[in-house]
Design a protein around this nucleic acid. Structure first.
Length: 591
RNA sequence: GCACCGAUGGUCUAGUGGCUAUGACUUUAGCCUUCCAAGCUAAUAACUCGGGUUCAAAUCCCGAUCGGUGCACCA
């Protein structure tokens, strides 16, 4: 029994959406090509993402290299944490974590190299816990693809396992670009790479995949969102930590969810809303979508809250397609530590704070000439003293082992009240991270419909049902936006058809032309790839300059003037107008 | 990575240790055709790869690759 995945993938393969990569050479698991229609579809999905996050939210897109230097991934934890030392039983071939096997024997197995672990295993004669067989040499399996930068292989480079680090690394530049104001965000759409041990599930788990990520830097003291009120009434399927215990998905508004503490704060909830809008706009069915909160033990230790957008797929069940996390200041702190640079931003207080401060002012006019080269050190030593120590007639100091006496006249001190206007803080990061490939696949699956066509052919003995395959893609993401079809394959219809093609192309519409076979067949061919509108040229076109536009989903047709079609098609694709809102052409001016 | 199952034109599939390896759909060219795939004529196109057994292998055996399923893995 063919399931939907099989049906969708068969269509995707046949019509040029998705192909297994390197098929010519036998293929390799974990890699997919986007064919002509798939690449266009994916690009349109990405552009809608840009429209929402870059244009509307104002989080500019950057582009950083797909190869990163080692320091980045030491800081991010991918070099250490993204790999595990494995050892395999030689007899039953079961793999085990080498460090786990020796943890009762040595103190810090997780800091040991694979060679050291092998040594320990051999010395203590550790056997396979499953079958008692001999264990093989331990090796590190890191999920990052490693390469060498430059000749000699001295400098390690890694293909990035996520795009996020690019935004973190550029943080100081971004702060300047956004002129020292929080919140701000930067986004990136690009490839990431993970050398999965055994990728399965087709396009769901890839070794090379496209991420669209936003890193939004916010003030940790204020996690509200100015536009939250616009989305507070949106109803979502929320599968919270509690809900997962009781197995209950709750429909509720985002306003309620924040108020009841189910979602940690407004900013995160706002990101959920935008994610929902994005997914629906590209063609994911709202009923087959939910937001699942990470359980406490599932969440990274530093994360304040984390929600995944999940999409229901026929074969794979609920598939994570987006992760939305409050990563706090973890990433910036990690890079600050690794790079030895301060990664913070100055923020002003609403009202300046008054702080009492004890100020010591050594009189350099006296100290300088008297102590010459030592004057600087003496001044610093004086500044470190407390008011008690400064209160005597003579102050005793030890500088470089030498006793020095300073007259109290040489140093002034006082308590002053200072106004502090702000401070350097490390922003928190809200990170919505989208798996574009999974989303693209999901919307294909959600758009895929097989319909029984109304006519059944009675073939004498057996009755055959004719089915129509339709991809009900939102017009905005459909790769081919309109098809121009002469009713009959005759020059007098083909020539005006080709003129219409040119006209639509000039209007920026991706259009195909097809004059082969019967008209019905051509409609079906276009239904199958999701072309939303078909324009048919018939003999009336020659008389009065009108054509019909056929709607993919309803199969309804409407007649309109050739001079109007570019505008009409554009409005229907990009402005959400439906066929019903196009005024039909009538020679008498009567509708 | 382990175990089990599978792999035949673009798609779905028939088949057998032995002549030019089925069929349907698709596609292409042409005919026909005034609106929803099924008319006519023709054409293109396949046994996953490597090794072995054999006079002969797409078929049997072994291995690899890819795909599916279960286990492990999925920061």
């Amino acid at each position: 029994m063919a399931d939907k995945y099989e049906q969708v993938l068969e269509l995707a393969k046949r019509r040029g959406f998705l192909w297994n990569s390197f098929e010519l050479y036998g293929g390799t698991a974990g890699f997919f090509d986007y064919g002509p229609l798939g690449a266009m579809l994916k690009r349109r999905v990405e552009n809608i993402w840009r429209d929402i996050f870059v244009i509307n939210e104002g989080y500019y897109e950057i582009e950083s290299p797909t190869i990163g230097v080692e320091d980045i991934f030491i800081a991010s934890g991918h070099v250490g944490g993204f790999s595990d030392p494995l050892t395999e039983c030689q007899k039953c071939h079961e793999p085990f974590r080498a460090d786990h096997l020796v943890k009762d024997i040595v103190d810090n197995p997780d800091t040991m190299s694979a060679d050291q672990l092998t040594e320990v295993i051999e010395k203590h004669n550790i056997k396979c816990p499953e079958c008692g067989g001999k264990l093989g040499t331990a090796y590190e399996f890191n999920l990052m693809f490693k390469t060498a930068i430059g000749p000699g292989g001295k400098r390690a480079g890694y293909l990035r396992p996520e795009t996020a680090q690019g935004m973190f690394v550029d943080f100081p530049r971004l702060v300047k670009f956004y002129r020292d104001h929080l919140p701000f965000g930067a986004t990136q759409i690009g490839k990431a790479y993970r050398n999965e041990i055994s990728p399965r599930q087709g396009v769901i788990r890839l070794r090379e995949f496209t991420q669209a990520e936003a890193e939004i830097f916010i003030d940790p003291r204020d996690k509200t969102h100015p536009k939250f009120k616009d989305v507070a009434d949106m109803v979502m399927n929320l599968y919270s930590q509690e809900g997962q215990v009781s197995g209950e998905i709750k429909k509720m508004t985002l306003g309620e969810a924040v108020k009841n503490g189910i979602i940690a704060h407004e900013f995160l909830a706002y990101c959920l809303a935008r994610t929902y809008q994005f997914l629906v706009r590209v063609g994911v069915l709202p009923d087959k979508m939910r937001f699942r909160q990470h359980m406490k033990d599932e969440m990274a230790h530093y994360a304040a809250d984390c929600w995944d957008a999940e999409i229901l797929s026929d074969r794979f069940g609920w598939v994570e397609v987006v992760g939305i996390a409050d990563r706090t200041d973890f990433d910036l702190k990690a890079h600050a530590k690794q790079s030895q640079k301060e990664l913070s931003i100055y923020v002003s207080y609403d009202t300046p704070r008054k702080v009492e401060k004890f100020v010591i002012k050594p009189d350099m006019g006296v100290l300088g000439p008297k102590f010459k080269g030592k004057a600087g050190k003496i001044a610093n030593a004086l500044k470190a003293l407390s008011s008690d120590q400064l209160s005597g007639e003579v102050i005793q100091l030890t500088i470089d082992g030498e006793q020095i006496e300073i007259n109290k006249d040489c140093v002034k001190f006082e308590t002053v009240t200072e106004e502090i206007h702000g401070e350097n803080i490390i922003p928190h990061v809200i990170e919505p991270s989208f798996g574009i490939d999974r989303i693209t696949y999901s919307l294909l699956e959600h758009s895929y419909f097989e319909e029984d066509s109304k006519e059944k052919v009675d073939d004498g003995e057996e009755e055959q049902e004719e089915k129509r395959i339709v991809l009900r893609l939102p017009p905005e993401v459909a790769p081919v936006q309109a098809a121009v079809l002469p009713l009959l394959s005759r020059d007098e219809l083909i020539i005006p058809g080709k003129e219409i093609v040119e006209k639509l192309r000039k209007a920026g519409i991706l259009v195909s032309f097809d004059d082969s076979g019967t008209i019905g067949r051509r409609y079906r061919r276009n239904d199958e790839i999701g072309t939303p509108y078909s324009i048919t040229i018939d003999y009336q076109t020659l008389d009065d300059g009108t054509v019909t536009i056929r709607d993919r989903d309803t199969m309804k047709q409407i007649r309109t003037k050739v001079s109007d079609i570019a505008g009409n098609i554009y409005d229907m694709i990009y402005r959400g107008k439906s066929l019903d809102f196009i005024s039909p052409y009538s020679p008498l001016g009567i509708v």
